[in-house]
Each structure stands twice: as structure tokens, then as C-alpha cells.
Amino acid sequence: MKFGIIVFPGSNCDHDCYHAVKHVFGQNAEYIWHKETSLKGFDCIILPGGFSYGDYLRTGAIARFSPVMQEVAAFAKNGGLVMGICNGFQILTEAGLLPGVLMRNKTLKFICKNVNIRVENNQTVFTKAYQKNQVLNIPIAHADGNYFADRDTIKRLEDNNQIVFRYSDKDGKITEHANPNGSVNNIAAIINKTGNVLGAMPHPERVCESILGGEDGRMIFDGIIKNSQEAIGCR
């Protein structure tokens, strides 16, 4: 399976993603400079974390006009798997590939710590290796992770089961105290309606090896890879 990791000026988790995909999971991986205009041959595109364009104007606002983003939109429209992590999630919302917006954290602080998230939907390509309601310990590192959307959009996301992870306590309870950034309904990750574009503020690529502090992020990649193998099996 071939993963493409988009590199914007200011991306800084691109190497973490590359390392996870290539060295932990033994898959093909390539960096894709944001000026590229073709995504031919890729099975999954990752928009990594970082501070693309210095977060100027709004997070992700300028990156979404990088030439490659037109290709990402076309790739997603054709059913290709796209995962945006942290800044990648912010870019996907700015690009309109996912609804809502990620605003400044309620505390106004940059938060870099491990948090607990609960798996809300394990029927997606990305989360099928998890149990529903499983609690994961995963790092976050952001100043703008406060998910917001209007009431109708939130209702639609809830009704369609598009909320993939929520911030929770270690027992899986969704409390205000467990919500690090003020996100509506403790939302940490959402998926588009067709189930092929995921946006997540937590960083699964940072917890794929116990030597780096945990393995709770592994199963996202396991899910994607397993899905691809099944698809090949069907052909």
C-alpha cells in the first residue's frame, strides 16, 4: 500500500507520519511537496500536523490553496482515503472537505499533552480495528483545536455517526473536565459522510511504538492497511 504525506511549508509532523507508515508498518511512503499536481498511484493521503504558512490569517487558510489541494479534493471525491491530523484537520475544514472549523482553544493556551479519547464510531475504514467505546491515550499538541460548527451541522454529524473520537476521561466518560480545548460535544475527530476523509486533532502517528510512549495509535494504520488488503483480495 502506498501512502503519500503532503508537505506544506511549515509542516512539522511529516517525518513522524513517514516514520510510522514506512518503518513501523513497512508500507510504501512518499513525501509529496505541496506544489505537486498529481496524486497518481497513491492509496492513502496524509495531511500532517504543523504550522503550514505559519498559521497566518487562520490555521490552514492559506495551505488549502496550495496546488496539491485541488488534487486532494479530487482524490477524496473519487473515494480515496484522506487523513488530516492536527494542522491537516484544520486544512481539511478550510478546504471544505470536512464541515466546521477549529478555533482557538478555550484556554487560549497551546496544549501539548496526552489525553484520553473514546472511539465513538468503529465502523469506519480508519477505526475498524478498535472496539466501540474503547478509550485511547493519545497526544494532542495544538493551540487551535476547539471544534465548532453551527447547531444544524453538529446535529447532522451526530445523526450520521460522523463523530469518530471524543475527548473523555480514562473511564470513557464524556465530561467537560476531559475536554481540553472547548470543542463542541467533546469532538476530537470527525469523518465525512462517505467515510473516506478523516480529520483528527490527536496524533496517532506519535503513539505507534511502545518505546515512544504508547501504541494506541497503531490500529488506525492497521485499519487502513487491512482495508487495502481486503480490497485487493476482492479484485
Binding site: L57, R58, A61, I62, E94, F148, A149
Partner: peptide, 8 residues
């Protein structure tokens, strides 16, 4: 297109 995010 760019200067404002009309969602918010």
C-alpha cells in the same frame, strides 16, 4: 474565498 471563514 480567503480573508474570512464564513462559518464563524
Amino acid at each position: 474565498k480567503l480573508l474570512a471563514n464564513t462559518v464563524v
